[in-house]
Simulated assay, not measured.
Amino acid sequence: MADLSFETIASGRCLVARVGGEMDYLTDPWFRPRFKELIAGGGRFIVLDLSGVSFCDSAGLNVLLGTWRQADASGAVLVLACVPESLRGILEMTGADHVLRVFDTVADAEAVFGG
């Protein structure tokens, strides 16, 4: 689990979280509290930059959906950016792409929120 990373950066009106590593049942206990803390921080517009995610299974998808639900319940808007093709396929196959908004780049997501 040494390759896991989670870094947040304030960018305009958005809070961008760069996520890296494998998102699976083994890393769920590492990622879940970081995402929970991210939402608890009170940011209104949150962009998850998933360009560094090398693998994601159903447990990782569950973390993303749970984070979206938590953000939604707190009045925040959470979107995904730079989603690797393999994860895009999972989002489409499961229908999660109808819940989780996906942008090609962080800049595209930021533009929707007014930079």
Score class of each variant (00 low, 15 high):
Met1Val: 08
Gln70Ile: 00
Pro33Phe: 12
Ser51Gly: 11
Met1Gly: 13
Asp97Cys: 12
Lys36Asp: 15
Arg101Cys: 04
Leu87Ala: 11
Pro33Asn: 14
Phe113Arg: 02
Leu64Gln: 06
Cys82His: 08
Arg101Lys: 13
Met1Tyr: 08
Thr27Val: 06
Phe55Val: 13
Val47Asn: 12
Leu38Phe: 06
Val53Gln: 10
Glu92Cys: 02
Ala2Pro: 00
Asp24Thr: 13
Val102Ile: 10
Val102Met: 05
Ala107His: 07
Met93His: 04
Pro33Arg: 09
Phe45Tyr: 15
Val102Gly: 03
Gly52Tyr: 12
Arg13Leu: 08
Ala76Tyr: 06
Leu80Lys: 07
Leu50Arg: 09
Asp28Leu: 14
Gly42Ser: 07
Val19Arg: 10
Ala109Pro: 03
Cys56His: 12
Thr67Pro: 01
Asp104Lys: 08
Asp104Gln: 04
Ala59Glu: 07
Arg101Thr: 03
Glu7His: 08
Val16Gln: 14
Gly20Thr: 14
Thr94Met: 10
Gly66Gln: 03
Ala2Arg: 05
Gly42Asp: 09
Val63Ile: 13
Leu38Ser: 09
Pro29Arg: 12
Thr27Ser: 15
Leu38Glu: 08
Ala40Asn: 13
Gly42Tyr: 03
Val53Tyr: 08
Cys56Gln: 14
Pro33Gln: 11
Asn62Ile: 00
Val79Trp: 01
Met1Cys: 11
Phe103Cys: 00
Gly41Ile: 05
Glu85Tyr: 05
Thr67Val: 07
Glu110Ile: 01
Thr67Cys: 13
Leu64Trp: 05
Gly66Phe: 08
Val106Pro: 02
Trp68His: 15
Ile39Thr: 06
Leu64His: 02
Gly95Asp: 05
Arg32Asp: 15
Gly95Met: 02
Cys14Glu: 15
Met93Cys: 11
Cys56Trp: 08
Val112Cys: 01
His98Glu: 15
Leu80Arg: 00
Arg34Val: 13
Glu22Gly: 06
Arg44Asp: 10
Ser5Ala: 13
Ala107Asn: 06
Ala81His: 03
Leu87Ile: 15
Leu100Thr: 09
Asp104Pro: 03
Arg88Cys: 12
Cys82Gln: 06
Gly60Asn: 07
Pro84Ile: 03
Val79Thr: 02
Gly20Asn: 14
Gly43Tyr: 01
Val19Gln: 02
Asp24Gly: 05
Thr8Pro: 00
Gly12Ser: 09
Ala96His: 04
Leu48Ile: 01
Phe55Trp: 10
Asp24Ile: 10
Asp108Trp: 03
Gly89Leu: 07
Met23Thr: 12
Ala2Asp: 10
Leu48Thr: 01
Ala76Phe: 02
Arg88Val: 00
Phe55Ile: 04
Phe113Pro: 07
Gly89His: 03
Met1Arg: 07
Lys36Ile: 03
Leu50Ser: 02
Glu22Tyr: 06
Gly114Arg: 01
Glu110Met: 14
Thr105His: 09
Arg44Tyr: 04
Gly89Trp: 01
